[in-house]
Write a protein that binds this DNA or RNA. Sequence first.
DNA 1: GCGACAG
DNA 2: ATCTTGTCGC
Length: 243
Amino acid sequence: MSWPPFPSPPDLSGAARLQRELVNAVELNGDWSKVGLLAALDASIKRGESLVAAAVLWDVQNESVLRVAVAKMPPQKVFPYVPGYLSFREAPVYLAALETLGTTPDALLVDGQGIAHPRGLGVAAHLGVHTGLPSIGVAKSRLFGGAAGVLDQKEGCAVPLCSERALVGTPCREGLQVGWLFRSRTAVKPVYLSPGHKVSMSETLRFVASLPRSTKLPEPLRQAHLWAGRARREGLAEGLVFE
DNA sequence: GCGACAG
DNA sequence: ATCTTGTCGC
């Protein structure tokens, strides 16, 4: 559970170059039926303050939180938020939180896009390729792709999220599926699911739909969101903050 | 030039 | 992402 440091490009063109290079390493297949340990990742930040990340180790079988780790990164070291480049901002602190967890999970569930990204490499896909771990992205809003059809209001329903244009240098043509629009709760805004790494399109939906959820976010991510916010507001120290 | 734009 | 009051529904 020790990974290389996460690269921090000097500018956006350098970041885009890295994304176009790493997108070729993304693997869109894999069986998640035996994923027992899941790590859910989310971050919280307030202007001028540190970026705080929470990694929640989730027991898939028992649907419970096993452990929670918190990591922080000083504002000066935090890459600016630019749509399309979120991984350079959040992945470094996610990596630190994962190391603190002390256990390598079987897979990652990340707050953000997987391959449903302008260059095919959202934060979930990037983190998956960097760590070699299977990953799925769950985003609360759209970055790339359009819904193929009308999404039913009923919870559990889904419609494909398809590419609005071809992505040069990749097999992605216009119209190719890049994820799912998933209604986690009846009459609630849907979430955008997309494969990150080592997972197929169908497994992405099957796995997320199998997770318990009381709100639009699957429970592991909701917990990560709560802990990240709590850690930031209450100034919790870095390290294991639960179990 | 204009609109879109994860967190 | 963050902040915020009221409001609606189970």
